[in-house]
Design a protein around this nucleic acid. Structure first.
Lengths: 216, 216
DNA sequence: ATCTTTCCCACCTAGGTGTGAACC
DNA sequence: ATGGTTCACACCTAGGTGGGAAAG
């Protein structure tokens, strides 16, 4: 079990008490369309959201027990990558990584009923390349390959978080390479086409206004 | 102690263990300028924020104990009011009120250290006149007079909330009359002058653009 | 040179304001 | 008629996008 690296098998066998627990990734088609090309996620100093957003629907929890949901993002290998001739190639050894930060879902702790009644979304999670980040964002190295993981922990509050009874889920289609600027223009176009916040960059059938010239 | 009405004295004597607990209302000058005229707060079906925002700085908590902070808003008397000849006058008996809802500060529960390190703001609290509200907003009756109260409860989580050890604080300058439309135009003007979201209604020294005519 | 990162920007989404007419 | 409520709206704040130039 590599220190902070992705363990195999990806999904831990859940404790017997939770054997019916099931997690389904939402918007799988969208994730797949990115994954087929090679997903890239922008990381910035201030922190950047992931797109697509990680959303999951959960079943099989004890309705009355309390759970904390968290995400972490672990390196998939020991390589550093570069984008060369329209493909990702290994370019060296991975940078050393600080112990991975955890993003605790802000609704935590909540009962099984509350987690199951609607899908759980992690849209507020942010990625940063700033190793000194003070805002609790997840710190990653650019040009490295990562795998997000969802953890479900039965615990009464975030302070008594113990790692003695939890289930971990990793969906391969959510893996990505962290970048500070998009490398593959097909990824850029998929983001523009699907992220509502990037609508300004869509080609509206020739009706798009030209960008204004800034006079300084 | 009137059922759901404002008890006297307004501030409960705190438990001895919390005798050093202190709560200071922020932006007291702003609250005072409203209070001097007669504060009105809009209530709507969808829920409306309060302005000024209720903010408090807190000291004297046990740094390591965990606390939940809540607000409720209680009737100040049994009257219904109306605004007549530029003043508020009693116009009848109060409407019956559902048991008051509590607004639990979203950072709850947190340690004394966390509550004390910066001021606590309740800007997300919303008021509604919709008795069937499903979104957890505080339900009030229009044309009735109210007093917001802050409660500090030592408790480990929101589910085990017990009313056996808490402190209540009520600042008279935060009392208000709930309305569906402003009655006193001095209140309207104070809101426009101070609420950033109402900047569009400020008179910019004659530079304000005329409102566009809507063609339908 | 080449590759990667940073910064400011126009352009969006999301949602908090009082208005004034319509509604009851 | 009168008094109170609702609704669509223009106009804001707040903050999430990738672009492109500049910087490293």
């Amino acid at each position: 079990l590599g220190l902070g690296h992705l363990p195999a098998p990806q999904n831990f066998p859940p404790p017997s008490a939770l054997k019916d627990m099931k997690v389904t990734l939402e918007q799988k088609d969208l994730w797949d369309s990115f994954h087929d090309i090679g997903t890239e996620m922008i990381i910035t100093k201030a922190g950047r959201r992931m797109f697509p957003t990680y959303k999951a629907s959960i079943s099989g929890l004890d309705p009355n027990a309390k759970y904390i949901l968290l995400m972490d993002i672990v390196p998939m290998d020991d390589n550093r990558y570069k984008y060369h001739n329209s493909e990702w190639v290994v370019s060296g050894k991975a940078e050393p990584l600080m112990p991975g930060r955890l993003y605790i879902h802000p609704d935590s702790p909540a009962t099984g009923t509350q987690w199951m009644k609607q899908s759980v979304t992690f849209h507020k999670l942010k990625l940063t390349n700033n190793a000194m980040d003070q805002q609790g964002h997840i710190i990653l190295n650019s040009m490295h390959k990562y795998q997000p993981r969802l953890h479900i922990v039965q615990a009464n509050d975030v302070y008594s978080l113990r790692w003695n009874s939890f289930s971990t889920f990793a969906f391969p289609e959510t893996s990505f390479i962290a970048v500070t600027a998009y490398q593959n223009e097909k990824i850029t176009q998929l983001k523009i086409d699907n992220n509502p916040f990037a609508k300004g960059f869509r080609d509206n059938g020739g009706n798009r206004r030209e960008r204004a010239i800034v006079s300084t």
